[in-house]
Computed example of a mutant assay.
Amino acid sequence: MTPLVLGQLNVELTDCADTDDWCKSVYELTRNQWLASSANWLIAKPLSILLILVIAIIIRLVARRLIDRLTKANGGGRIPALLRPLKERAPQALGSILSERRAQRAKTIGSVFKSITSVIVFGTAFMMILAELGVNLAPVLASAGILGVAIGFGAQNVVKDFLSGVFMMLEDQYGVGDVVDVGEASGTVEAVGLRITTMRDVNGTVWYVRNGEILRVGNSSQGFAVAVVDVPIGYGADVEQATEVIDRVATQVTDNEPVSDDVLEPPDVLGVERVSAAEGIMLRVTVKTRPGRQWAVQRSLRAHIMGAFEEAGIQGPVVRGFGTSE
Rank of each mutant, 00 (worst) to 15 (best):
T251R: 15
E100P: 01
D20V: 02
L53W: 05
G218Q: 11
L42W: 09
A237R: 03
R216L: 10
G204P: 02
V135F: 14
L61I: 05
E311C: 04
T117Y: 06
T324M: 14
T2V: 06
V180Q: 01
D161R: 06
V180Y: 01
F126T: 02
P80E: 06
A142Q: 13
K288D: 04
M1P: 07
E100W: 01
A17D: 12
A63E: 05
I281G: 00
I116G: 07
A278D: 13
V26D: 00
T251W: 12
D268S: 11
P91R: 03
L29V: 08
P139S: 10
E12C: 06
V121Y: 00
R102G: 01
S260Y: 06
V253Y: 02
L283H: 00
I58R: 05
E28Q: 14
T198P: 00
P139Q: 10
G292K: 02
V259E: 02
Q298P: 01
P232Q: 03
N211V: 01
Y27C: 06
M199D: 01
A93C: 09
I55S: 13
L130I: 00
D21G: 11
V62G: 06
V135C: 11
L4S: 10
G183I: 03
V249L: 10
V318C: 05
G307Q: 10
R248N: 13
G175P: 02
T124M: 13
N40K: 13
W34A: 15
D230T: 04
Q104E: 11
L13G: 01
A225W: 04
W295A: 06
V119D: 07
D15I: 10
V259S: 03
L86H: 07
D21S: 14
V231R: 00
Q173R: 14
S143Y: 14
G165K: 06
L82D: 07
R31N: 15
F162H: 07
L66H: 11
N10A: 15
N256E: 15
T108W: 02
I129E: 02
R101A: 11
G145S: 13
G175Q: 04
V297R: 04
H304R: 15
G145Y: 11
P91C: 09
A144T: 05
Q104F: 00
V121R: 02
V285L: 04
I79A: 10
A296Y: 08
G313T: 00
P317F: 08
I314V: 09
L147W: 09
V112I: 11
S164I: 03
W41G: 04
I116L: 15
V119T: 05
V202Y: 05
Y27P: 02
R102Y: 08
S300E: 11
N203G: 11
L42M: 14
W295R: 09
D238Q: 09
Y208P: 01
V5I: 12
V272G: 06
T124D: 08
Q315W: 04
M128F: 09
I146L: 15
G193W: 01
L163C: 10
V239C: 09
A44F: 12
V62W: 11
K72Y: 08
S325W: 13
V206K: 10
T124A: 15
Q33G: 07
I305G: 00
W34I: 14
L163F: 13
I305A: 04
L13A: 03
D18M: 12
E171N: 13
N203C: 10
L66F: 15
A81W: 13
D255C: 10
S111P: 01
A312C: 08
M199E: 01
Q315D: 12
S96Q: 14
G75P: 00
S276R: 08
R69M: 12
